[in-house]
Nucleic acid binder design. Structure first.
Lengths: 119, 119
DNA sequence: TGGACATACCTAAACCTACTAGGTATAATA
DNA sequence: TATTATACCTAGTAGGTTTAGGTATGTCCA
């Protein structure tokens, strides 16, 4: 359940894109779950969508891991849970961004081999 | 409303990269499992590696789905199982390539928003 | 006043992919 | 002969994501 130490990084070809996107958004500003879902859709040029039900487990794991922290904020008598990125989250974001670029470049090389070099 | 039973799925943010790469390689020439593993490593600029033990289940699934077909070929008294892509596999490759580009563009937009246009 | 709808959050369980970690067997090399 | 490289294989599992359901409040409007 809890992966204390052995968080081991089996280099997945690609998972963690949702987390990457969430952390990226939160690095720009505090947001609440419901908002994040829609922001991802918009920020990705409406090409990717994150099922609404998926965001909460994702956020909870991120919080457990200390990558984000939440605080309640009232809004029109309704409570919203805003999430903010932590320093650890910023580090994680950098790491994931690096991995993303590596995978992306690797796949690109394989797909476009033979074609003119990519930038 | 109801989707067909088992098959379909979920717009994953990203899975299927291994399959994408395998099909891509096989679209260029017939290869055997052990060779594919090393080819992926090379073709991706040595940035991605596919665990050797992973390739066989992957190939078996691809064959079950009719995307590749295999034939034995002797080589120095040893038998190799060569895989070739099928028309169905070619279609699948196109589909996966399209999905890959969509995800890649979406993530890129989200990550680089604000920066100068990407190439 | 009440019904529909959007907002906002939540969770257990299922689902798939891909990985781990082990295995077999042959050929080449030292 | 022992070791290494080649070549294939599979059961079991991890782990990220989705599904499919749920609760509850606020807003709009007929």
């Amino acid at each position: 359940m809890k992966k204390e130490a052995a968080k081991k990084a089996s280099q997945n070809f690609l998972n963690g894109v949702p987390i990457l996107l969430v952390l990226k958004l939160l690095s720009e500003k505090e947001m609440y779950g419901y908002e994040i879902v829609r922001a991802i859709h918009e920020k990705t040029g409406r090409s990717l969508s994150f099922p609404e039900g998926s965001i909460y487990p994702t956020l909870h794991v991120l919080e457990e891991d200390g990558h984000v922290k939440s605080r309640e904020k009232a809004h029109n008598g309704r409570t919203r849970l805003y999430y903010a990125i932590t320093p650890s989250g910023t580090k994680k974001l950098e790491q994931l961004t690096g991995e993303w670029r590596k995978v992306f470049q690797g796949v690109h090389l394989a797909l476009d081999a033979g074609k003119a070099g990519l930038s």
